[in-house]
Write a protein that binds this DNA or RNA. Structure first.
Lengths: 111, 111
DNA sequence: AAAACAGGTTTGCACTGCAAACTTGTTCTT
DNA sequence: AAGAACAAGTTTGCAGTGCAAACCTGTTTT
């Protein structure tokens, strides 16, 4: 398939900036709690919560709610497929950029 | 600003997959006509049209309509700022990926 | 006991991307 | 010459999305 067709089909779940940030951060720390992710990304609580729900529904992350002493704690970590997905997504973007740099338009008839 | 905050603030006009494909293609060919872009990206005519309108309104592309013989021809090319913007966008993504790979979570207090 | 706070979730709305329907003009077909 | 098919886009309608603000539930402070 052509580079540009591939580009239009990028996974929107992962491509959305807030979720790209969340997933990328999680890929680099075994797990994180809600508050940590919030300060890291600068997202509002509501916004973060809904993105996490979406990622959980898609099987990208695990969300574990527990108590640390008396205060509730929500811990988020990547699932195996989530880790694969975010790594693959960045790799694709990276390759697209490289390939795009070398692309030269061909005559219309060959496209 | 933190890497992940920057990520959540990626320019959505350019980040959207279809427009990323359009802009990246245009950055590599001085100009393209509507039909060529359509077959290149695989977008429907309606969809392509609305993305182009959005890019034009944002000053990213020039759209010039003329006639080639009797058939109308719509020619699209990047504006100066459009070219700067798409190059900068890819560069940012590229740097983000690199930086993210080396990021190590710090203690919460230092974030 | 009441106010403030921590840690999230739910709701409401404005905006978006997409497909389908429409438009305008041209070229075949008979 | 009438009409069917086609080319090249544009507009419309709708389902889905991201975001902020309101809300909720329990805890700590005053």
């Amino acid at each position: 398939m052509s580079l540009f067709k591939e580009m239009t089909e990028l996974d929107k779940l992962l491509h959305e900036p807030a979720r790209l940030a969340i997933m990328t951060a999680l890929a680099n720390c075994e797990s994180a709690d809600f508050t940590f992710l919030q300060s890291l990304t600068g997202l509002s609580k509501g916004n973060l919560s809904s993105h996490l729900t979406k990622l959980e529904e898609a099987g990208m992350v695990f969300i574990i709610k527990s108590f640390v002493g008396k205060i509730p704690n929500t811990n988020i970590s990547l699932s195996g497929s989530g880790e694969d997905a975010i790594n693959a997504h960045w790799k694709r973007l990276d390759e697209m950029r490289k390939e795009a740099k070398t692309w030269k338009p061909e005559t219309e008839s060959t496209v």
